[in-house]
Amino acid sequence: MGHTMEKLRRLLRHLWLDADDARRALGEAALDRLEARVRASETGHSGQICLCVEASLPPSYLWRHLARGEALASVIRDRAITLFGKQRVWDTEDNNGVLVYLLLAEHRIEIIADRALARVLEPAAWQDLVTQLAAPCREARLEDALGAAVDRLDHLLRADFPRSGGADLTGGGGLSDRPVLR
């Protein structure tokens, strides 16, 4: 009975939340601060950082977990990969874009890095970064979690992809600096 109740609670949580909830969870002032943080970061490196906050999983993803029994972590990772493509994070000149995906309904964060950036760190190091961000996510300190992700990625990108002196400061991929809410 406990397992069934947990599935029901998860289903209701995902059906209840929408993009407006993501907007309310962060607030306009936090969105403005995060946008400014990404913009400031991108002046020092050639990478592109995309923040994406999704309120809940689409029904097809939720179904994979609840009905088919796929691990929730795997389903969330697949969703982040899908949004990496939909947001065109892969479409940067140096293949060094990164998506920071936060799933509000589960207070879980995933980081998907493009090829050149993914080669900079071992997969375990990327997982360590996600683990470091887990506590603020669980505590609903969403701006703190996203801001810490930007700061850590800024450090990595500045070290491995510094912006050359005369480079255009608008970013190679032209991705929006504003967090994407879904």
Rank of each mutant, 00 (worst) to 15 (best):
V89H: 06
E93M: 11
R39N: 08
M1N: 07
T170K: 12
D32A: 15
A140N: 14
Q87N: 11
L15W: 12
I112C: 11
W90Y: 15
M5R: 12
A134S: 12
V38S: 03
R88F: 12
P162F: 01
R33E: 13
R13I: 00
H65M: 07
I109N: 00
I109T: 02
D94N: 13
R24H: 12
D160Y: 10
R141C: 04
P58L: 09
S41I: 04
L117F: 08
R178A: 11
D154M: 08
L153M: 04
N95M: 13
I49G: 01
L11V: 05
L8S: 09
R23K: 11
V150H: 03
R178C: 04
S60G: 05
E106R: 03
D18Q: 10
A105V: 00
L175E: 07
H155R: 15
H14G: 00
Y101F: 15
I76S: 00
A149D: 04
G85I: 07
C137H: 00
E70C: 08
E28C: 04
L8R: 08
S46G: 12
R24W: 13
A124G: 02
L15Y: 11
S164C: 12
L11A: 11
R138Y: 00
D32E: 15
C52A: 14
G147P: 04
V98M: 00
R33Y: 06
D78K: 08
D94V: 10
D128I: 09
N96F: 03
V120K: 07
A73Q: 13
P59N: 05
S176E: 11
E93L: 15
E106W: 00
D151H: 10
P136F: 01
A167Q: 15
G47N: 01
S164Y: 10
G147F: 04
A116K: 13
L169N: 10
A22W: 04
E122D: 15
A134C: 09
L181Q: 06
G69Q: 05
D78F: 02
A124Y: 06
A140K: 14
A71N: 08
R68S: 06
I81T: 11
E70L: 10
L8C: 10
L51V: 09
A145I: 07
L129D: 10
A67G: 06
L117M: 06
V98G: 04
V180R: 10
R39Q: 14
T43G: 08
L57C: 02
A145K: 01
A145F: 04
L102R: 04
R77I: 02
E6P: 01
T131Q: 14
H3S: 11
E139I: 06
P162V: 00
L26Q: 05
L17V: 07
G85N: 13
